[in-house]
Design a binder for these strands. Structure first.
Length: 900
DNA sequence: TATCCGACAGCAT
DNA sequence: ATGCTGTCGGATA
């Protein structure tokens, strides 16, 4: 079945709507056979025993729900085991006005008016057996053009190698390319009156050798900058005056070869009207940046994601104002307001946020004008657009991208003018595009160092929206310039060095909007809302009378780049406190909330600060041992067998090595772990001595002083924390999917790696505390993340964890539950921890043992059971605050006593 | 200065 | 697409 057919079916079902038949019609619309649906209706296929529910294996769960419960109910359904057992792809709830659905495989949500369903029909396409169609082919025109531009670029560079000799000539080349692109667009999209005028004239007036191509282009670009062309030859007079912005500066065109000229003409022959200025700019940007060449436009932000930011920031509110305006005066006032708003992207790249915003604002204006026209009746007084490109401000560090942003805004203006004419000027009234009158206010520069107020001046009454997707870089990936940027931006702040580079934009954004009506919102790495960065960044923002007014919780960033890791991002909007509604989005579910904490949760603003001692009375936890060896002190099974068979005595220098991966996947790894008194003996073994030497060389080459020093003892780990006796092991990184943290128990024949956290000299009940649901709820809330997966930390997760003092008797009781868990694990010796703790394959007995432990742990806190994780977390946060208060009080007393 | 630890527009399978 | 490494700079005592 084709997707257009399905869309048609869905429209049909809405047009002939029946409450009783709705869900059945829906299934039929997506191509489920009539016989199956009949059997479902009769009840044969319905696996739910609850009245009014429909549970169709591997397909859907459906229920009619009260309006006020739709959103809460869908979250419950998504967790209910009896439902998940049947693996429905979708959960669908409706009150026949609204429809809320969840894709249980992808975790995506849908929350729409039922009558809008035909517009969102693709959400349920997997029901028809096809995954949602992949949009990657849609950009083929952009891709082809970009690759061809890359060819031309390479040819020009080859013929004009001197271009790279100065910054100025690179800049000139950028402008030159930008002018070519403008001409390609102009001749295909009626900006130039005659179609193909650029390519045709070029082909006719230049020699095949390419030798005079640059002269032709010099003359042509001069002409495009000249208002009065009377004195020029006829072939140039045919062109129009464009303006003094794009063509103002006199630049010598690069020399062409015959191949370059041919490529230029081929480029002109492409159909540029199909090219989409939203993303083309980002792709073409890759042309001049060789590193990105293979992944054209890797970092461009999709329209979908841009809307996720601009809708809650301003567009939704403007549309509300539009809906509520009923008189011509009100509507005109709204246009006036819109025409005064400033949109500012201080990391604008090739301008996608500004372009999409521009288009959306123009569309809104068209709608307002249509409404005015309706009200005015017979003789509408339509004016030209009030929206100016000069309302759009940007800063971009990359010179070429900044040229592309300026160009793309012109093209977007032209595109929207066409839409404007089509929708409003049925009488053929039009306005000449050329000469281009004004441009967006895009400045080239480093946004972390420039004064934003100078780029986009702001007064206390100005309506300004700051938007964008600035660069993210964790502190260890920043280069020297970026570190210097951080130093300048945070010159008045202590303890900023571990912040992500993007924190510069948040801090400057906060200073920029202070005491104004402006707001800002950025797409950002989720790192600044998790782990240790939260308490570093957010006090700087929230202490200035500002608040998070909307946020999208973590979602996976998708880009077309090959070989590039995914990254999890959030979208955060900040404003000066104003007491109006706040919205928290999870996937596409929108929830009105009382507060949005810096962790992007609906709780008060509590900061969990890393501690080096436990808050509760628990044994100390430390990081595992770090080899710092470039792999030379570590052995896999094969290497170990080989080395021992050759020289059996080495066995005494080898211990088992256990990291998160070895523990979770059940693989074997070994390490060379020797003590002070057998160093000499170890060096006698050739294989070991060779490895030590490699370690020494590696450490000497390190930038870090401490590591260089450790080159003196290459036979030891860089940081050896190993102790005698048994220990509990917690993997540093673990999948987000698990409901429990898999914890291990090992003896000292194992050395735990730096990818673990361990507790030596331990009692079993502590194993129970860390394995508990209470603990993972806490960890999920406060831990840092790698993508979406948890990063367990002793200082942040364990040392901060509030756990009550318990009696020895309680401890002994907990021990029993821990033994039960270990027993259950032992029943499955062939299964890895990954299998045991995968929520879909977890053995029932193990799950039950964990649940029994959970109850016992929770009773240490209070007798009344917890209803859900939200309640658990609330309780834990409260405990944390109380215990922290007592702790600091105690510390102060201690200090004052010392002073006496 | 010695010691300890979180993070990763990531990295490997 | 899943799921965790190892090296590094920064902070603390």
């Amino acid at each position: 079945m084709k997707s257009t057919e399905i869309k048609h079916n869905v429209q049909n079902l809405i047009d002939n709507f029946s409450k009783e038949e709705f869900v059945f019609d829906l299934l039929v619309a997506y191509g489920i056979s009539k016989t199956s649906v009949t059997r479902l209706k009769k009840g044969d296929y319905n696996l739910s025993k609850v009245d009014g529910e429909l549970l169709y294996k591997k397909k859907i769960f459906y229920k009619v729900e009260a309006s006020d419960k739709l959103l809460s109910s869908i979250e419950e359904v998504a967790k209910e085991e009896r439902i998940l057992k049947q693996q429905p792809r979708f959960a669908i709830l409706t009150d026949f006005k609204q429809l809320v659905a969840k894709d249980l495989k992808l975790g995506k949500n849908l929350d729409i008016q039922l009558k809008e369903l035909p517009n969102y029909f693709d959400f349920f396409l997997p029901l028809a057996g096809s995954e949602v169609y992949n949009a990657s082919n849609n950009n083929e025109a952009d891709r082809n053009a970009s690759y061809k531009m890359a060819d031309l670029y390479d040819l020009l560079i080859e013929e004009n190698p001197a271009i790279y000799n100065s910054k100025e000539s690179i800049h000139n080349l950028n402008i030159f390319l930008s002018r070519l692109l403008f001409c390609f667009f102009a001749e295909d999209t009626e900006i130039f009156k005659d179609k193909s005028i650029f390519t045709d004239t070029l082909a006719q007036h230049t020699a095949e050798s390419g030798k005079d191509t640059h002269l032709f282009l010099n003359d042509l670009f001069d002409r495009l900058n000249t208002e009065n062309a009377d004195h020029l030859p006829e072939y140039l007079r045919k062109f129009e005056y464009v303006n003094g912005g794009l063509f103002g500066q006199k630049i010598a065109s690069p020399i062409f070869t015959s191949k370059a000229r041919k490529t230029l003409i081929e480029l002109g022959d492409l159909n540029w009207s199909e090219i989409n200025p939203d993303i083309f700019g980002s792709m073409i940007q890759a042309v001049v940046d060789k590193d990105y060449r293979s992944d054209l436009g890797m970092h461009y932000t999709s329209v979908e994601n841009i809307l996720k930011l601009i809708k809650p920031l301003f567009l939704d509110e403007l549309y509300d104002a539009y809906e509520n305006a009923t008189t011509i005066n009100q509507l005109r006032a709204l246009i006036k307001r819109i025409s005064k708003i400033k949109f500012f992207d201080p990391a604008c790249g090739s301008g996608n946020f500004l372009i999409i915003t521009y288009k959306e604002i123009r569309l809104l204006e068209i709608k307002i004008l249509e409404k005015i026209t309706d009200l005015e009746g017979q003789s509408p007084t339509i004016k030209w657009t009030e929206i100016q490109l000069s309302q759009f401000y940007g800063i971009e560090i990359d010179d070429f991208a900044h040229e592309m942003a300026i160009l793309s805004l012109w093209l977007a203006e032209h595109q929207m003018n066409k839409v404007f004419e089509e929708r409003l000027f049925d009488y053929g009234k039009s306005k000449p595009i050329l000469p281009l009158k004004e441009a967006g206010q895009i400045k080239q520069g480093n946004a972390t160092r420039r004064d934003w107020n100078e780029v986009c001046p702001i007064s206390s009454t100005d309506e300004v929206y700051v938007i964008g997707n600035p660069p993210y870089l964790g502190y260890s990936r920043q280069d020297e310039t970026q570190k210097e940027d951080m130093k300048i931006v945070f010159s008045r702040v202590n303890n900023y060095k571990k912040l992500d580079y993007i924190a510069c934009w948040f801090y400057k954004g906060t200073n920029y909007i202070q005491n104004t009506k402006a707001k800002y919102a950025f797409v950002t790495t989720n790192s600044i809302t998790q782990g240790e960065q939260v308490a570093l960044l957010w006090p700087l923002v929230l202490s200035k009378g500002q608040e998070i007014d909307f946020a999208h919780q973590s979602f996976k960033w998708t880009n077309n780049a090959k070989g590039n890791a995914g990254v999890a991002v959030v979208i955060i909007g900040v404003r000066n406190i104003d007491g109006t509604d706040k919205f928290l989005y999870n996937q596409n579910l929108k929830q009105s909330v009382k507060n949005i904490s810096p962790y992007l949760a609906n709780t008060s603003n509590v900061y969990v600060i890393p501690r080096n001692k436990t808050l509760s009375k628990l044994s100390p936890m430390i990081k595992g041992s770090s080899p710092g060896d470039n792999g030379n002190l570590l052995l896999d099974q094969e290497e170990k067998d080989k080395i021992i068979s050759k020289n059996p005595i080495t066995a005494k220098f080898i211990k088992r090595y256990i990291g998160a991966s070895e523990f979770i996947k059940g693989t074997n790894r070994y390490c060379i772990h020797i003590t002070e008194d057998n160093v000499k003996e170890a060096y006698k073994i050739k294989e070991l001595a060779e490895r030590f030497e490699k370690v020494e060389i590696f450490r000497l080459n390190s930038k870090k002083l401490a590591t260089k020093k450790k080159a003196e003892t290459p036979h030891f780990f860089d940081e050896d924390k190993h102790q005698e006796g048994e220990f509990i092991l917690v993997p540093q990184t673990g999948s987000e999917r698990r409901n429990y943290i898999p914890i291990g128990y090992f003896d000292d024949s194992y050395v735990p790696s730096n990818a673990t956290r361990v507790i030596y000299k331990v009692q079993p009940w502590l194993f129970g505390v860390i394995s508990s649901r209470m603990h993972i709820v806490w960890v999920k809330a406060v831990a840092g993340r790698l993508k979406m997966d948890m990063q367990y930390s002793n200082t942040l997760c364990y040392n901060t964890f509030p756990f009550p003092d318990i009696t020895n008797k309680q401890k002994e009781n907990l021990n029993l539950y821990v033994f039960a868990i270990l027993d259950e694990r032992a029943k499955h010796p062939s299964k890895t921890m990954a299998q045991l703790y995968n929520p879909t394959t977890m053995p029932k007995g193990l799950l039950q043992a964990h649940q029994a432990l959970d109850t016992a742990i929770e009773q240490c806190y209070r007798l009344q059971p917890f209803k859900n994780d939200t309640e658990r977390l609330e309780y834990l946060f409260k405990q944390y605050e109380e215990m922290l208060q007592k702790d600091t009080l105690f510390a102060k007393q201690k200090q004052s006593r010392k002073k006496k």
